[in-house]
């Protein structure tokens, strides 16, 4: 069979070019990380003239990378896990009870989607200090509260698209609510769970302002600031630190991304 050029091939070619534009700045970061500062300034777009790893060495040591990445990982892990657990429970219950209260509570959660974080920043940090939460554990707790609105919003939508029959028959068989939720409902929620997990992981991993106010140092985003001064920007080590801190989350995203469509679609579209 002969290959024939169809319109769809043009379309695909065009999309690939567009995709390159999307990817280009990210490639640029990777390229720069492999060059000395002077070379970045002189030939920003050229390939590295030789393999230059000093930036990574510097970024690794100054950021105390292994410890920092572990801290960030744990905060992200526990933060996400807590959001998933508390929000899925709340959202399921809200979606399955058809009372005035549940509608009011659901609206209350959705209300926060439109509040900019900077507005609650100072009172929140004072509160956290009053409750002795200015430590990584406390930060995790704060994330559970701050992550709830989006997660409840998305879970709520998804639960509505899941048929009730299974739960009802289990209830008739005498299963407790806890059993129904954890054994029957939660597995059904997997696509949306993965989606929320990805989105919240991205958010917590990349968050800067809240960790700065609460634990002051120790996460990747905060450690990067050593290179990203108000005045002085060391582009080489900075880009290397960007690569180091973004790689884990990128790998995570790439592994899990096939779920994201299913989840976002179900959660968002039917919300």
């Amino acid at each position: 069979m002969k290959f024939r050029v169809k319109p769809v091939h043009f379309l695909e070619a065009f999309m690939i070019i567009l995709a390159f534009l999307y990817l280009f700045p990210i490639l640029f970061v990777f390229l720069s990380a492999l060059k000395p500062d002077a070379e970045i300034m002189l030939h920003p777009l050229a390939l590295p003239s030789k393999l230059y790893l000093d930036n990574f060495v510097k970024a690794w040591t100054v950021m105390k990378f292994p410890k920092t990445v572990l801290t960030t990982f744990l905060i992200t892990l526990f933060g996400v896990a807590g959001i998933l657990l508390t929000s899925s429970m709340a959202a399921w219950m809200l979606a399955r009870t058809n009372t005035k209260y549940s509608w009011v509570l659901y609206s209350l959660f959705a209300f926060a989607l439109v509040i900019p974080f900077q507005i609650i920043m100072v009172p929140l940090s004072v509160l956290a200090s009053d409750m002795n939460l200015t430590n990584p554990q406390g930060l995790v707790l704060l994330y559970w509260g701050l992550g709830a609105p989006m997660a409840v919003f998305m879970y709520h939508g998804f639960v509505k698209s899941v048929p009730k029959e299974l739960e009802e028959s289990a209830a008739i068989d005498g299963a407790g609510t806890g059993y129904i939720f954890f054994k029957i409902v939660l597995p059904l929620l997997k696509p949306i769970t993965v989606t929320i997990a990805i989105l919240d992981a991205l958010w917590i991993w990349n968050d800067y302002l809240l960790p700065l106010l609460i634990i002051k140092q120790g996460t990747l985003q905060l450690a990067q600031m050593a290179f990203n001064g108000q005045f002085l920007k060391e582009y080489g080590p900075l880009t290397a630190s960007l690569v180091l801190s973004a790689l884990p989350i990128m790998v995570f995203y790439l592994f899990e991304q096939k779920y994201i469509i299913k989840g976002i679609a179900a959660g968002a579209v039917k919300g």
């Binding site: 508390t86 429970m89 399921w92 219950m93 009870t97 707790l141 559970w144 701050l146 409840v152």
Partner: peptide, 25 residues
């Protein structure tokens, strides 16, 4: 009771860390 138990954790944290600071604002 179930309704409260399921919703309370998320609602409590949310109210504490989001609504309360907003009110203080």
């Amino acid at each position: 009771a179930n309704f409260v138990m399921f919703i309370a954790p998320a609602l409590f944290l949310y109210a504490l860390f989001f609504l309360l600071p907003f009110g203080q604002g």
